[in-house]
Amino acid sequence: MQVPIMKQGPYLIATIQGEIVDEDFIHLRTKLVRMVSKNRSRGVVIDVSSLDTLDSFATRSLRDMAKMIELQGAETVIVGIQPDVALAMVRLGLFLKDIITMMDLEDGFSYLKKSQGKRISHD
């Protein structure tokens, strides 16, 4: 199932639905990177709240996506990781280091709004 991407001002929202296979992640990555550059987006929120599992491939895909989006000058926030998913992830050693994670869409947006323009510091 393909992941819908919505545009909201300078931000993009990708809501990953329950039934997702590995190819969908690859597809999402390509589409997201393309849309960021096309729309000159400043931030991307990836909502995973309806996923009840995040395996190593999914985690790596999310990481790669975030890094690629960062290279295009936008920030990525992953939101809505469920309690049990979070616990399973850390048990498997998937920490999503240096990726911003937030509680929900609302928090994700408020983070993006706050960090706007502060990403590049001069010191």
Partner: peptide
């Protein structure tokens, strides 16, 4: 530590 990591993943 595991708990703290999991909480961070959830945004806390």
């Amino acid at each position: 530590i595991l708990t703290i990591d999991a909480a961070r993943l959830m945004g806390a």
